[in-house]
Nucleic acid binder design. Structure first.
Lengths: 195, 195
DNA sequence: GTCTATAGGCAGATAGAC
DNA sequence: GTCTATCTGCCTATAGAC
């Protein structure tokens, strides 16, 4: 029962637009009117699919987190060594920035204090998932010698997530994806086994 | 002609409140009404001191950047070695997070796409200044052997700024300043000369 | 410098026809 | 499912009295 990907149903197209708006402008800086205009429909129609902005936000982050998890699983299926997997992880972030977007959860982390409780929980869960995945990666890399680092895997995992989120945050005003890539390479270089 | 610091004039107290609101909630998530309520005055009075929200934003970032520059100069006056200066630089960020705030320019970087042009320019200038200062620091550290790093000073400087901004961004949802400090220590550890 | 009062606009949201 | 019409509330901003 395949549906045409080109012709996703309305609920999905709303989610697509909302996701982009959150990543580019932030949750507090877009309105139902923006989405309605983009899709050529009215605000009232949006309320039929998502009862309010908070619920729309929940749906956006839920889909984003699922997709991110799927991409992590894909990396594990495709790349064998810890070093390759880490490079692929960095590429996920680079792809977001090339689309002139901020990481959804990085953007929402900035707005954290203004967001409803369940969205806050989802942000925390996203970062927790990333940390768990990276900790396993780092343990693997330390064991097989493909990654070198001094601190605990947990602190190092947070250094990676923070380093990439921050590099995106700072690179975006410059509108320069290459800036991010050079910064990320400097971060990756600290994990090279032979120095 | 000294004025009492405890009794700063109204324009300064407005700036104090606005600065905190931007750092905690973001520029798009506070209003003149919030500031007026906090200071026990009316919105109209605020407009006497700052004609509009955009001008208020300009004033906030201008004062913040000046203060930040002064703190960098203080570090150079107090700490001699590059390693000590870098540690003190990290402490600046830690202090902001302990006050439960995000770096002002990190927050504004997230909101960048929604901000007026002159505020955008000020954000870029802030990061440029930080990079310049860190590049000099890194060159000094490489020369005197107190800091070790592989990439160019410029890329490494951006790795530091990004790493600290991102570590703040991610630590703030957890409401845990210690989390930032451990992450920052992991970052600093990559600069240790003997590994 | 600070107030009251208010303008004008846009936000999120709902009712009810089709 | 989508529309028109509308509500209520908050936003930024201004006029004018004190």
């Amino acid at each position: 029962m395949a549906t045409k990907a080109r012709n996703a149903d309305t609920a999905d197209r709303i989610l697509d637009v909302a996701e982009e708006l959150v990543q580019v402008r932030g949750f507090n800086a877009f309105s139902y009117a923006d989405i309605a205009a983009e899709l050529g429909m009215t605000k009232a129609a949006l309320h039929y699919h998502y009862s309010g902005k908070a619920e729309l936000g929940r749906a956006v982050i839920a889909r984003y987190s699922e997709r991110f998890s799927a991409e992590l699983a894909e990396i594990e299926a495709r790349d064998a060594t810890a070093a390759d997997r880490l490079a692929a992880y960095v590429d996920l972030y680079a792809g977001v920035l090339r689309a002139r977007r901020m990481c959804l959860c990085g953007m929402l982390a900035a707005e954290y204090q203004t967001l409803p409780d369940d969205i806050r929980d989802a942000i925390i869960a996203f970062f927790d998932d990333n940390e768990v995945w990276l900790v396993r990666l780092l343990q693997q890399g330390r064991a097989d010698g493909s990654l070198r680092f001094d601190g605990s895997p947990a602190d190092t995992a947070r250094m990676i997530v923070g380093g990439l989120e921050g590099a995106m945050l700072v690179a975006r005003p410059y509108g320069d994806a290459k800036l991010f890539e050079r910064t990320a390479r400097a971060l990756l270089a600290t994990f090279r086994p032979a120095r």
